[in-house]
């Protein structure tokens, strides 16, 4: 095992190499592959139909509700991890705290449920 301080150099190197592999692959494909664009080829694919307009437009915002709930529960997670690691030292006190925290968030989940915000149409 290497020095612990070097651990994050590994993380950095893996990220850089990951991005590098993508670039090299694209470059290889650019060198090897033919490139003969025509008007038809560059058109957006819609199962052979003529595409009408762009896809970017107004979208139903209820997709957003799920992202919102997710963000809230993700914030819960950043408290769950330290709590779980130090769980035995924190004892019943910490458990009660976390139970109250989760209960309050579950109230929000229940609200979304009753408001039918959890339905995907």
């Amino acid at each position: 095992m290497p020095d612990y301080n070097l651990s994050y150099v590994y993380v950095f190197a893996f990220f850089v190499v990951g991005a590098g592999i993508v670039s090299v692959m694209m470059l290889l494909s650019h060198l090897l592959a033919p490139f003969k664009p025509t008007r038809e080829k560059l058109r957006t694919y819609e199962s052979g139909e003529e595409p009408v307009g762009q896809a970017w437009g107004r979208y139903p915002t209820h997709f957003y509700v799920f992202a919102l709930l997710f963000v809230v529960f993700d914030v819960e997670v950043i408290f769950l991890f330290p709590w779980a690691v130090l769980f035995r030292e924190l004892g019943w006190y910490g458990l009660v705290e976390m139970a109250v925290f989760i209960a309050i968030l579950v109230v929000g989940l229940f609200y979304a449920w009753k408001k039918k915000a959890l339905n995907w149409y």
Binding site: T61, Y64, L68, V71, V72, D74, V75, I78, F79
Partner: peptide, 20 residues
Amino acid sequence: VVFVFVVAAAEVAVGLAIIL
């Protein structure tokens, strides 16, 4: 900083909801 994360998440959620 952890509490700033909480506030940032709440702020973005509500801010974007207002914008939408």
